[in-house]
Design a protein around this nucleic acid. Structure first.
Length: 358
DNA sequence: CATCCGTGGCC
DNA sequence: TGGCCAAGGAT
């Protein structure tokens, strides 16, 4: 796999580059395992610049494992709102509760123990133990896989589990025992700053001389990735059901998209269906009969491979009132603002509040 | 192994 | 505007 020359030169050159070019991270002063656990979880599929303000707010509110374990899921989600992948927040919350009970409130520093916890995979466990505990474990993220694939001119799809295993093994062979945390972070910083997905800056790369892809002029066509799905355009409607200046909101509990977040009852517009018909269907989903439809907001957003136009349609409750429950509430505008919402639903609420003022 | 889960920035 | 991408993990 590696030539003897690469085996020695790569970790050396990478660590030297890292000493001069490391991006400052808030945990560098105090690499606490709990801090790293929260940070690594937030950083899953999410860029550093996006995470940092969330991380600060989150740790200020939940400074210890126990603070997080004792909080309500709804409050945890409120602090996660806007970061996406909300299962991460719910798993982290549960992990904190398990650490509280089974590990006396201190985050374990063994990969096998961490991997038992919900939401913690190979990357997150490796990041925590290597950075917070100095243990020689790889922490390969998409940056690491991309860099290793280019260094080795690796020709197979790097998202295959067989490829991942090979690249993890390759990483172990060059992982320095004395500085695993710095090495792992160096891979991520090099991937973010130099060995980028598009237009890698090979002319300033410390590993250019060791990189088989660069030598063969393949850096732009590696790594090999699977073909991706084509985007689909869809229309959604949410029903803003009003009654005595309150709105009927429901909590999503389908275990899928936006699980645990609140919304105005929402449906996908079906083929041949009008927006008003869809609004009736959204209302009937929570047992409400409505009339008096008026579009109050149109919000465009993207979810995964869908491109969504969300129409918020205000309507009035007719006939008997609807009973609230754990997952259904009549809320004042002020109460609505305090609920955890998805980003598009937060924008709908913002427009509603604007029109309310006038 | 395939699919699902968010969002914002960039070009 | 639309596609791509980012400190992945669960089912």
């Amino acid at each position: 796999m590696w030539t003897p020359e690469q085996l020695h030169a790569i970790p050396q050159l990478l660590l030297e580059w890292y000493q001069a070019n490391a991006r400052p991270m808030p945990w560098q002063e105090n690499p606490d395992p709990y801090y790293l656990l929260v940070a690594a979880t937030m950083l899953q599929q999410t860029q550093v610049e996006t995470v940092l303000p969330y991380l600060e707010r989150f740790l200020q509110r939940f400074p210890t494992v126990c603070d997080l374990a004792e909080a309500s899921e709804e409050e945890v989600l409120r602090y996660w709102e806007g970061l996406g992948y909300y299962n991460r927040a719910r798993y982290l919350h549960r992990a904190a509760q398990q650490i509280s009970r089974r590990h006396n409130g201190s985050v374990p520093c063994r990969v096998e123990a961490l991997r038992q916890l919900p939401g913690i995979g190979e990357y997150t466990a490796g990041a925590v133990v290597s950075i917070a505990c100095g243990k020689p474990e790889p922490a390969l993220d998409s940056n690491g896989y991309r860099i290793l694939a280019r260094l080795l001119a690796f020709q197979k799809d790097i998202t295959l589990s067989s490829s991942r295993r090979q690249l993890q093994e390759a990483c172990r062979q060059i992982l320095p025992e004395h500085a695993p945390g710095a090495f792992n972070q160096a891979l991520m910083d090099l991937g973010a700053l130099v060995c980028t997905a598009r237009e890698p800056r090979c002319l300033v790369c410390p590993l250019a001389e060791q990189c088989l892809a660069f030598q063969q002029g393949l850096q732009a066509s590696l790594p090999v990735l699977p073909p991706q799905q084509v985007g689909e355009k869809v229309q959604d409607v949410c029903a803003v059901i009003e009654h005595h200046k309150r709105w009927l909101m429901r909590k999503r509990t389908d275990g899928r998209l936006w699980h645990g977040l609140w919304e105005f009852p929402r449906v996908r517009v079906e083929e041949g269906e009008t927006l008003e018909q869809a609004a009736r269907r959204a209302a009937s989903m929570v047992g409400a009969q409505v009339d008096g439809f008026e579009t109050v907001a149109v919000v465009r957003h993207a979810v995964m491979h869908y491109s969504v136009t969300l129409h918020a349609i205000r309507c009035h409750l007719c006939e008997q009132p609807i009973e609230g429950s754990d997952t259904l509430r009549w809320v004042s505008p002020k109460e609505a603002q305090r609920l955890p919402l998805s980003s598009p639903m937060r924008r709908v609420l913002g427009k509603l509040m604007q029109t309310q003022k006038r």
